[in-house]
Structures are given as structure tokens and as C-alpha cells.
């Protein structure tokens, strides 16, 4: 019993450590003065200022565009890749492909970002341009770091899928493609959805890689970077508060859809 109390106290302390900074951040976003240390009164003025700031709205729009496009592309390429990798018969080809897939996960983000930046700079110079960094290069880099997450969430679902189902469907007259969409696809769908949502969230959140692969096309994290470069100000707090609750909402959504889909597939199995 005594151990249980200690556990509870320890857990509370850790959670306090994790959430206190976020709580302070949210608290001071409602401050009426510019201070982020002394609360002088409740006000929504920093939120008002945020929505009046055209640059932030533009950055948000760009972030959403890049996140939607990159997660969509990464989901298509990644799912196809996972299906192919799962069926690979040569062991060395499979392990080589998986090793390459792991590179962006193992490499520090700063190196991943720099390596792509250097390639883009080289290609730009080849065409006599000063810089080709912008929307296209940003999108390419986001698709690249998103694909491994899609592959790694689809692969386990493929392993769980009964190989004979697809064969049975083909024996009953389905073409391989039809068999895939009728039989395999529904059972790996939860993995695809998880991968896509992860890709979307990671893309929304990315700063380190984007910092190197875009120039004039500013996303929200890059805008926040330039904001915090100047000084501490409550409008950053207000923006952070909105981001926090958006992410919270997305994560809950991911979890709910995941468990719903899992219970659905379980029901189908029965």
C-alpha cells in the first residue's frame, strides 16, 4: 500500500513537470499586460491580435497545405511500398529497403534537413539559380520524412493479414488488384489511417527539417521561430494555446478512430 502511494506521488510529480510549462503558457495567453510573469487581469486581446495578423493566417494556411499534400502523397507511396516490401521474397532486398527506410528515423533531423538542403542547393546552382528552396522543396522534404512512418504503421497490419485470403479471392476469380482492394485493403485500413494521421501531425509540427528546406515559403513553425527570435511576448502564448488544443483534439481523434476501427475489424473476424 505504501508503495502505491509513492507511485502516485511520483506519477503526479512527473505529470506536473510535463504539464506545468504548458499550463503557464496557456495561463499567460489570457494576460492583459505584456508580461509573461505577472498576471494583471483577464483579456483576450492577444488572441484578437493573432487573428488580425495576416502573416500568421497565411503561415497557417501554408502549413495546412503542406501537411495535407505531404501526408496524402506519403500515404499513397508508403502504403504501396509497404505492400511491396511485405511480398518481397529476397531477404537482402527486403532488409536493404527497410534499412533505407530507417535512415530518416535514425539520422538526427538536422542532418536530414541539411542533406536535402545541400542537394537542392546543388541542383539550383546547376540550373544557374540562386535558390530553389521554397514550396516544392519543402513539400518534397515533408513527403520524404513522412513515408517511413506510413510504411512502419502499415507493415504490421499486413503481417497480421492472412496471406491465404488474397489467394482464395483470386481462386474465386478476382484479379490480383481486385483481390487486394476487396480483401487486403480493408484489413490494413486502420494502419493506413494511423500512418496518414501521424504524417499529417508530424508535418504540421516540423520545424528542424523545414528550417533547411524552405526559404521564402514560411510555415507556422518557421514563423514561430522568427517570432521567438525577437522576444518573449504573449501573442506567442496565444498561438501556442491554440496549437496545443488543436493537437490534443487530433490525438484524441486518432485514438478514437483507431480503437473504433480495431473493434470493427475484430467484429468482422468473428
Amino acid at each position: 500500500m505504501k508503495l502505491k502511494t509513492t507511485s502516485k506521488i511520483y506519477t503526479s510529480l512527473i505529470l506536473f513537470f510535463l504539464y506545468a510549462p504548458i499550463a503557464v503558457l496557456i495561463f499567460f495567453s489570457f494576460n492583459s499586460s505584456k508580461s509573461t510573469g505577472v498576471f494583471t487581469g483577464f483579456s483576450l486581446k492577444w488572441y484578437g491580435e493573432l487573428f488580425k495578423n495576416a502573416d500568421i493566417i497565411e503561415a497557417l494556411k501554408r502549413t495546412l497545405i503542406v501537411a495535407s499534400l505531404s501526408s496524402a502523397f506519403a500515404t499513397i507511396i508508403g502504403t504501396a511500398a509497404a505492400v511491396g516490401i511485405d511480398k518481397m521474397t529476397k531477404k537482402w532486398v527486403k532488409s536493404a529497403t527497410l534499412t533505407v527506410t530507417n535512415v530518416p528515423l535514425m539520422n538526427p533531423d538536422i542532418v536530414t534537413g541539411i542533406s536535402m538542403m545541400l542537394m537542392f542547393v546543388f541542383v539550383g546552382r546547376m540550373f544557374g539559380q540562386k535558390s530553389i528552396l521554397g514550396f516544392n522543396t519543402l513539400l518534397i522534404s515533408h513527403i520524404t520524412f513522412n513515408i517511413p512512418y506510413v510504411i512502419l504503421s502499415v507493415l504490421p497490419k499486413l503481417k497480421q493479414t492472412d496471406k491465404h485470403l488474397s489467394e482464395a479471392a483470386q481462386d474465386l476469380g478476382c484479379t490480383p488488384v481486385a483481390a487486394f482492394f476487396k480483401v487486403v485493403f480493408p484489413s490494413i485500413l486502420p494502419g493506413i489511417v494511423t500512418g496518414m494521421m501521424m504524417a499529417f501531425t508530424l508535418s504540421l509540427d516540423d520545424f528542424i527539417i523545414s528550417n533547411f528546406t524552405t526559404d521564402t515559403y514560411q510555415t507556422l513553425p518557421i514563423y514561430i521561430y522568427s517570432m521567438t527570435k525577437k522576444n518573449v511576448s504573449p501573442d506567442i502564448n496565444a498561438l501556442s494555446t491554440i496549437i496545443f488544443f488543436t493537437i490534443l483534439f487530433l490525438l484524441v481523434l486518432i485514438n478514437v478512430t483507431q480503437s473504433r476501427m480495431e473493434s470493427k475489424t475484430k467484429k468482422l473476424d468473428l
Binding site: I14, V24, F207, P221, V232, I236, S240, I243, I247, L251
Partner: peptide, 18 residues
């Protein structure tokens, strides 16, 4: 435990700065 990890690194660091 995982939720703060999904917050932007810049924001987490900025929070401690303030």
C-alpha cells in the same frame, strides 16, 4: 506522457524561457 511530445519543440522551449 506523450501529449507534450506532440507540441512543437519551439513552443516547449519557449515555455521554459518565459
Amino acid at each position: 506522457v506523450m501529449i507534450p511530445m506532440w507540441m512543437n519543440l519551439l513552443i516547449r522551449t519557449y515555455a521554459w524561457m518565459t
